[in-house]
Amino acid sequence: MEDMYHADRAMSTQQDIKIKADKVQVYYADNHAIKDVDVEIADKTVTAFIGPSGCGKSTFLRCLNRMNDTIDICRVEGDITIDGEDIYDPKVDPVQLRAKVGMVFQKPNPFPKSIYDNVAYGPKIHGLARNKAELDEIVEKSLRKAALWNEAKDRLTAPGTGLSGGQQQRLCIARAIATAPEVLLMDEPCSALDPIATAQVEELIDELRQSYSVVIVTHSMQQAARVSQKTAFFHLGNLVEYDDTDKIFTNPEDSRTESYISGRIG
């Protein structure tokens, strides 16, 4: 009976925990950038990180696929697990981790290669395709999922840098999807895009929720409200409040969250 209840609850609210962070601290040299962050991120959900500039939301996001490793002075403490496996375990290869946890960046950053090669890059380095046909299939599937196939199918050999800003960002999403990740991290993916391109990308994020756990950092509260089911509010390196998006935007518990949402800080 007890088990049934749990299973039922998990099914109904899709609360399978994908990522679990426990007392995470991040230091940049002597600067304590992230303090004591505990968070559980659910699978097949869009989780939004919001907060004023410099609150640490991007820093925390970059901890989830160990992109912070590339910065010499950055140090991470505490536990972050994905599917129960500690990603900062010395046995973990960040390369494998990043294949599993894809990332889309603030500014679209297609490689100066063709559209096809951009998407095929990940599958090639990870050896996901045994032959050209399989690779073609992965590329097409990824571009379709990123809602770019119709625009790009006739110009796969054209350079990725020749696309418009919104198309470039969707290409970057396709590129990230192509490695068959389980989690997709998005660091302000729409901040460099115009409103129409933003709407297209947001629509895409909503669809991606079917297959992935999506974590998105945004400075736009409206965007968080539109695309996410869960929202975490960061302030000065602390995770102030984490709850269902509806709750955060209608009835926040912490006064700081309320101030931010009503536009008084930030």
Binding site: N65, M67, T70, V95, Q96, L97, R98, A99, K100, G102, M103, V104, F105, K107, N109, P110, F111, P112, K113, Y121, G122, I125, H126, C172, R175, A176, T179
Partner: peptide, 24 residues
């Protein structure tokens, strides 16, 4: 951003250099 894009896909540093940085 070019390097980040590649590393974020799980490329190793040398793969990033050989296949993204040097061609660019």
């Amino acid at each position: 951003a070019m390097r980040d894009g590649s590393l974020g896909l799980g490329a190793t540093k040398s793969e990033t250099i050989r296949q993204v940085v040097v061609p660019a």
